[in-house]
Amino acid sequence: MKDLLERLNTKYSLTDIEYQRDNLVFLTIRKENTIDLVTHLRDYEGFTHFVLLSCVDWIEDGKFQLTYFLNQPERKYDIVVRTMIDRDNAEMVSAHHLWRQITTYQRELREMYGINFPGSPGVDENFILEGWDEIPPMRREFDTKKYSEDTFFPREGRKTHDPASYMKEKLYPTEPTTAKVNKTDE
């Protein structure tokens, strides 16, 4: 694996190389070179098994991390290629021509994160959601709890009490304390 990475590093500039295990390495590459590297790994380094295409939302940095998992079935190791793309007008070069299942992944990422992959077949078709008019739901700012509270009705008559606040109310209502109400009553 070490030699391989050295080889790759002469061709591509890789950053953040992290070994999670001996046979699982994560690395980061610039957006422009990502598909190039993935193709190279597939065609020249035997990474013929495509495991997963995923996205991580680093909302605080304004970035989406696209994660391409590649597996070398002969040598039995994995390289995980990460790249950061802008969250605004998120767009990435399509890789659907490399493996068939990538079409599905890209459709999903389009729907769940709002990332566009121009040219990817059916990328704008509904995948899982139908008639969804909120922001793409896997984005960090989409608040599932609030959505479900707004969309569904809560059960009538439920009320809970925070033990510390309740004890203050019962036992020492007028005395000073720094105990904070840590759970809000519902």
Binding site: T48, H49, F50, V51, P73, W99, R100, Q101
Partner: peptide
């Protein structure tokens, strides 16, 4: 087909 294995995952 055998070659589909990697093509389709």
């Amino acid at each position: 087909k055998k070659e589909w294995v990697d093509q389709f995952g």
